[in-house]
Amino acid sequence: MTTNPGDAFIWWEWITRRPGEIWERTIEHLQMTVVAVTVGCVISAALTLIALRYRWTLGPITWIGNLLYTIPSLALFVILIPYTGLGFLTAQIALVSYTIQILVRNMVAGINSVPASVTEAATAIGYRRLHRLWAVELPLAAPTIIAGIRIAAVTVIGLVTITALIGNGGYGAFINDGLNRRFSTPIVLGGALSILLALGVDALLMLVQRAATPWTRRRLRPRSS
């Protein structure tokens, strides 16, 4: 409860005076995340359908996804600036390209993990290819697919903060502001809110997965990145 921002690591008064700005940034951060993950899901679903229908395309699709994933987000933002300018579109292209690798990998793994006996039984009782995919394979693959969406969403929430450098940013705007003024309070605020948002969205998606696939009783098991 100090009044001297120069000495205190967190100046609580600075934070409590800005409920409006915090709310605004939260909405902006969520908006950017939801758009990026939704567009990423649509593109990844299309790529997964192609990869499942024409098996030889899985290699190239995975390769391109990995390439996009490896390019650092800051570099990708900057390379896109001459084409799409400083702003929302540039940020979205970079964020979406980051989700593809995560989502396609989980979608393909989910569909592939459906036991052959199940798909054969579905075919035997008269399911056509697309109907079977929709009514049999998709529900069984749902836990793996939603796990991918969780990872993508959490990753994107962290990356959105970097878009503050090209004029967007959500909570990243606080961090950028703090950096420019050598003032720690907004940096702590932006970082902490970003982590809380990520954990919140992760928990929410986990509940969605439980509700959508009540037949799975998930055990707590470590997973690799």
Partner: peptide, 18 residues
């Protein structure tokens, strides 16, 4: 693993400064 993914690198590096 979860904390690691949620940790925004921009915030970590900015926070180190002060």
């Amino acid at each position: 693993a979860n904390i690691g993914r949620a940790l925004p690198s921009f915030a970590v590096i900015a926070l180190v400064l002060p």
